[in-house]
Design a protein around this nucleic acid. Structure first.
Lengths: 216, 216
DNA sequence: AGCTTACGCTACGGCTCGTAGCGTAACTGC
DNA sequence: GCAGTTACGCTACGAGCCGTAGCGTAAGCT
């Protein structure tokens, strides 16, 4: 649940006409539709307002601009991501990879995700917004998966919390990075076969690295 | 050497006034300067022309638009990438990772790379251009590194060429994806320590996967 | 020379941006 | 009910950039 981190910062005003939640939903939906039809670069806020059936000024009252609006629109798609229990660590990783790839396969995600990341390189608030509403909830899945594997006895419990955090970051960048790169840069599909190969390399590598670290 | 794949499609015209190579260089340099100062979204072709000291119409005579121009401008930065022989496969991978990260650390690369990739999701010719002038020459380094490792005896020779190609693609997406993701999405630096951890996981994973495959 | 192509310059219609201003609608507390 | 407060729709506007047309000039080739 992303839930409008942009408005009513907390314990917001109680008087006056409340903002229409229906308008919020219509705008975000219209934004995704416009992304599919026009792509990021040709998307205009005037067009989104027209599709959503609201005035252009309403958009500017709620979002600072195109960047913030699109982040919220695609963040909802990433909310679907969950981590179904498939019984073993390799199966879980493979499932997560395929699920992530499914979201990245949507045309609105493809065109929008890289664009807002590019914008974020020169916009610190936008970067925070992306992290809070998209990236961090993905990283959460990594932590969840590790905890599950430790409960199953497939992974040893971590002793050094700092090292554990670094490893989690490494895993996250490797998984998300590889899937994104294959999908958007190489332009090749993330099919079950690729997911299987990738998962195998990743898990064998992590197991070997943990073993080597234990010998230090 | 990117060398203007956009002009004079082959055996181009020989009569008339030739295009100024100095103008080409000035334009690409001005484009990078504008990327640094303004970023992708605020970069305008009129401004680039002003900086380069050429007429705006000259830009449109050589490039179809902003996308193509920026691709050529950043492609020159990736031309620097080489694969110095560091004596062992892990050292080579680590060096390549750090070198790649250095290019991604430049402000003009950070803001431009993701942006053109985003544009390319709805523009097939642009995708081909990016592949030809940026991606493929990176992938070449992977093949070069593997050949070198095989010559050293660190890797077995491949028997199945198709499987070898798939593995090379997997490695490429894992390396480039992880570095890009850490730099541009997570926003954390790719320092020697991270490069070391990453390389260890990758190579141990590949070794383990090759071993497992041999047993099939 | 004469031909051919590149270049600089000006000017233009068209589009999008983001905002200001106003009247109306919706909800709250007295 | 009524007054206060906030959201909404609508119109209009200056500003900026886009991409192109048209023209005169510059730089090579034969």
């Amino acid at each position: 649940m992303v839930a409008n981190m942009q408005n009513r910062t907390s314990a917001g005003h109680r008087t006056g006409r409340p903002r229409s939640a229906a308008a919020d939903a219509a705008i975000l939906e219209a934004t995704r539709a416009a992304l599919i039809e026009l792509g990021w670069s040709k998307l205009t806020l005037g067009d989104v307002a027209l599709r959503a059936g609201v005035a252009k000024t309403t958009l500017y009252r709620r979002w600072a601009g195109k960047n913030e609006l699109v982040v919220d629109a695609v963040a909802e798609l990433f909310d679907e991501l969950e981590l179904p229990d498939r019984g073993s660590l390799p199966a879980d990783v493979e499932g997560a990879v395929l699920q992530f790839a499914t979201v990245l396969d949507r045309p609105e995600t493809r065109t929008a995700l890289m664009a807002v990341v590019a914008e974020a390189t020169r916009d610190e608030p936008l970067r925070r917004r992306i992290r809070a509403s998209i990236v961090d909830c993905q990283k959460q899945l990594v932590l969840e998966g590790r905890a599950r594997a430790q409960a199953r006895g497939e992974l040893p419990a971590e002793e050094d919390p700092e090292a554990a955090a670094r490893t989690a970051d490494l895993i996250f960048d490797m998984v998300a990075g590889a899937v994104v790169h294959r999908t958007l840069v190489s332009g090749e599909p993330v099919d079950p076969r690729w997911a299987r190969s990738f998962t195998r390399v990743l898990l064998l590598g992590l197991a070997g690295a943990a073993e080597a670290a234990a010998q230090d």
